[in-house]
Design a protein around this nucleic acid. Structure first.
Lengths: 221, 221
DNA sequence: TAGTTATTACAACGGTCATTGTAATTTTCG
DNA sequence: CGAAAATTACAATGACCGTTGTAATAACTA
């Protein structure tokens, strides 16, 4: 038999992992495009180039598949965002320009991983029908993990004397960074439902970084 | 015959308007609860206490009904939020306390009109499948109208010397108000998908208002 | 290569649902 | 009241979909 959850204990034959990942990839695309309810198992199987029966053998049922896809996608995006943070804070010298560059990529994550955020919009819409532990798990390995990494980097920059951030205000600074940059864009574009002109995007991000520096720059009050 | 859109030209018999509004009310509840796809016409008709055939006679098809519901609900919420602004700015004397009171009710709107915001979460999730003009129309009679009203009140307070707001920075102040209060709560609760403890809610709103006053209070730089 | 195991094609079941037609019934308006 | 219009109950259609069983086939491991 096959496990229903997503993590497998011992055996793991060669081709299975490829099939499994093909299914996850295809399902991510179809779920993101069509939503949980509209996405049909057959469509997912076709997108993954796999028999629909194989899909059931791997993930038990539609809900199990959705959970696996959500977690898989969340881990991938979190990893990418953390790598992005590493890359930018590694060469962190001038707050004004470096934070702006970071912000552009940070906020651009919604466009770099469109399928994932389409997925997130789905679960937000279906939150009432989803088990709370699924939502919490998603938060844990997704947004919260990303925030934790950001918090560490901000603290590091604070210790280096580049930002006015310490243990005292690190939580708020982390929250504010997310709010001023990604949050601002999110609200203005209705969570990405409406197109946002590049100029508006640029202006929002720039304003957000300026405000952040006004609060947490070294010359700040 | 009957019109498919939602606005009717000339005739309008007595009972029709009641039926129509009963359908809109029922559909708002069911669409919000179950989502566009899962919400069945029969369930909506039952909720409204109306034959499903009548529903088709009024709104043509499911999508037409959804549009009508969205617009109807948006107008209602916008009206309520505008009334809320009127009420609070009418007795606007002390920025610190008055803005806090306003913010609590302003942000609480998501809980005062849960069905509407469930609806909004649906259209955000289904944005790819919705005509762009529907989305724009929603923005126009919904969020944008509310923002416009807020902007006027902020300007008024600026003219009265209670806030450091003028024509120059009114747009940004309006955006910041929404971002610092509702936006902060929205992000933290994943658009209302996850429950937020009252203390966290209270803290976010308080922080938001403080930040707003730091930027636009009279003693601000 | 032989045996185990995963995968596939295929068919079928049971259920849900949007939509329409129709004829009877009720409501409304002049 | 009496005609016109709206509403209703009812049935039916056509489509889609999640899920399962089965037997044949292919892939993999030892």
């Amino acid at each position: 038999m096959v496990n229903q959850g997503g993590t497998r204990q011992k055996p793991l034959r060669k081709g299975m992992l490829e099939k499994r990942q093909a299914i996850l990839k295809g399902a991510r695309a179809v779920f993101g495009r069509d939503g949980y309810t509209r996405a049909s198992i057959d469509a997912i199987a076709a997108e993954a180039g796999v028999s629909s029966r194989t899909l059931y053998n791997h993930f038990g049922d539609k809900e199990g598949l959705f959970r696996a896809v959500l977690m898989d996608s969340s881990v991938a995006v979190t990893t990418a965002q953390q790598a992005l943070l590493e890359r930018h804070f590694h060469k962190f010298r001038d707050p004004a320009t470096d934070l702006y560059d970071l912000a552009v990529e940070w906020v651009g994550g919604t466009e770099t991983h469109p399928e994932h955020f389409a997925l997130v919009r789905q679960i937000v819409a279906e939150a009432n029908r989803l088990p709370l532990d699924v939502l919490r798990e998603w938060q844990r390995i997704g947004p919260k993990a990303t925030r934790a990494a950001l918090r560490e980097h901000l603290l590091e920059a604070g210790r280096a004397g580049l930002l006015a951030i310490d243990e005292e205000n690190a939580d708020r600074a982390t929250r504010h960074w997310a709010l001023f940059t990604a949050g601002a864009v999110q609200i203005e574009s209705a969570q990405g439902a409406l197109p946002l002109e590049p100029e508006a995007f640029e202006r929002l991000v720039r304003e957000g970084v300026e405000l952040f520096l006004q609060l947490y720059g070294k010359q700040a009050a």
